[in-house]
Design a protein around this nucleic acid. Structure first.
Lengths: 160, 160
DNA sequence: TATGAAAGACATCATGT
DNA sequence: ACATGATGTCTTTCATA
């Protein structure tokens, strides 16, 4: 594990908020010479602490309404079919542009984060494209009414 | 709503993968003049299509094990207490560094994405810090075994 | 590992097609 | 939408401590 000092953490926090801050701006805000900031960032990237730089899309590009959907597959008579079916389910869901995240939990459960332009279109998508998938035991839908933390995951996960 | 053309989308996709690409690199990869790329990016930022630039943390900084936790609050005798209690719950969870995301669904449900160094520490955290919260009706824990899409949300949400 | 200075690369802007 | 060139800013490298 890599040990970070205060300067490393300060750089990371500032870059998380705005990765377009120049080295000279960082140097000014943190009262360190440009070459030091440059050296630290280079090391952080080399060590893999900073993985990569990316962009977040703005409000007008992202779904206005999201929901977390918990999907449970019916246990088939032949055990081995379950794993294959759940994998197939994950691939199917992953391909849908409305589906922001897909994860597997346990043998028979798939959890997805789903987005839509508004509440109606989101419900429509879930009813027509998820609840209709074959061989499901349960589908629990948790519409998100308000984020308390991590709201921006939607901006991050949205594709164009 | 803003209408994007193929060039806009191509720029966004490349910047999502690597926001440190220079205008000249983008210009080369997309076979368009630098001035055009520069102009497009400027417009995309002005229009709010690109919200901001950020960094993702690497594997060694992020929790190795995550879980989605669905928390239902007990309905109190006095209706009005429920909203206050759920809001309090959200604030409490949001302050925990292990908690990557918190969202409210309906009147009595809070959903969180929680991370830990490994399965044992994650379970410990959930058992000691979440299941022990007062006035809960149910806590469903869905440990994530595998991501099918959106895996990087963990890199995005992790703080230092 | 930290720093200062210098060289080279880059973004930005204005102007014109 | 694209081309070009002028300008100032930023990154990167290297020598030194």
């Amino acid at each position: 594990m890599t040990q970070l000092d205060d300067l490393d953490r300060a750089i990371i926090r500032l870059l998380k908020r705005n990765a377009r801050l120049t080295i000279s701006e960082l140097s000014e805000q943190l009262n360190k010479p440009e070459s030091t900031i440059h050296f630290r960032i280079k090391k952080l990237i080399e060590k893999g602490v900073i993985d990569r730089y990316t962009i977040l899309l703005g409000e007008e590009m992202i779904p206005k309404k999201t929901a977390i959907v918990v999907i449970q597959a019916e246990t088939p008579i032949i055990e081995d079919f379950l794993e294959r079916y759940v994998n197939h389910l994950m691939r199917t869901l992953s391909m849908m542009p409305n589906v922001l995240m897909v994860a597997k939990s346990g043998k028979d459960t798939v959890i997805a984060i789903v987005g839509g332009e508004n509440e109606e279109k989101l419900d429509e998508f879930i009813n027509e494209n998820i609840k209709t998938l074959p061989t499901l035991k349960n589908v629990y839908v948790y519409p998100i009414d308000k984020f308390g933390k991590g709201k921006e995951l939607v901006n991050f996960l949205t594709e164009v």
